[in-house]
């Protein structure tokens, strides 16, 4: 056996270590990687809401992070659905994230084929004007000798996202205007 100098011995040791690293006796980087990824809904702001689709009225939790809805799920504390959701309610996140979402009121003038963006004040004013005009034109005080005080020219359609109190208010307003066609989306 030849004599090894200190320098030669170090070189040999280095080569051995390098070889062992090559043949996969190193540490496992996967674990470290997994721990560095943050949980999707960590530090998200959670807001409870009611599903707008059907009359069941399931509770939903909306997770917001950095101004974006990152996840929606059934509210486990809600007595109606207890954390579960149907596929439609599960897709509620897209109400906010979808590219097709309409963010401002749109107006299509009579006879026009184009929708134009309008502001809320204008839209609400226009609705109020038309309601008043239509009601005044079509209001019937008496019919076949009976006092009816109604209009059959306007109809109202409620939605499932309305709660008891809101529905009560709408009912009051519409009856006050003399409407008889008062319906609800969740009954259709």
């Amino acid at each position: 056996m030849m004599e090894l100098s200190r320098r030669q011995f170090l070189k040999l040791s280095g080569a051995t270590a390098a070889t062992l690293a090559v043949v996969e006796l190193g540490f496992d980087p996967k674990k470290a990687q997994a721990e560095s990824n943050e949980f999707k809904i960590a530090h998200s702001e959670v807001t409870p809401t009611i599903c707008p689709y059907c009359s069941v009225g399931c509770g939903i939790l909306v997770h917001v992070k950095d101004g974006d809805v990152v996840y929606t799920e059934g509210d486990p504390d809600h007595p109606i659905n207890r954390g579960t959701l149907c596929p439609k309610g599960n897709g509620i996140r897209q109400l906010y994230t979808s590219e097709k979402r309409v963010e401002r009121p749109k107006y299509r003038a009579p006879g026009s084929t184009e929708w134009e963006e309008v502001d809320w004040d204008w839209a609400l004013g226009r609705i109020a004007e038309n309601v008043k005009k239509t009601r005044d034109e079509s209001f019937v005080v008496e019919e076949d000798g009976m006092t009816v005080n109604h209009t059959e020219a306007i109809a109202n359609l409620g939605g499932a996202a309305l709660e008891n109190e809101e529905v009560y208010m709408i009912q009051k307003l519409m009856r006050g205007l003399g409407l008889t066609y008062i319906e609800h989306q969740a009954r259709i």
């Binding site: 030669q8 070189k11 040999l12 080569a15 051995t16 070889t19 043949v23 996969e24």
Partner: peptide, 22 residues
């Protein structure tokens, strides 16, 4: 295969280094 690869790598590298040294 892994065992063989290990043995081969060790052999080749040790051979290479010792060859260079001596």
């Amino acid at each position: 295969g892994k065992a063989l690869l290990g043995v081969t790598m060790m052999g080749v590298l040790t051979g290479y280094v010792t060859n260079k040294l001596f």
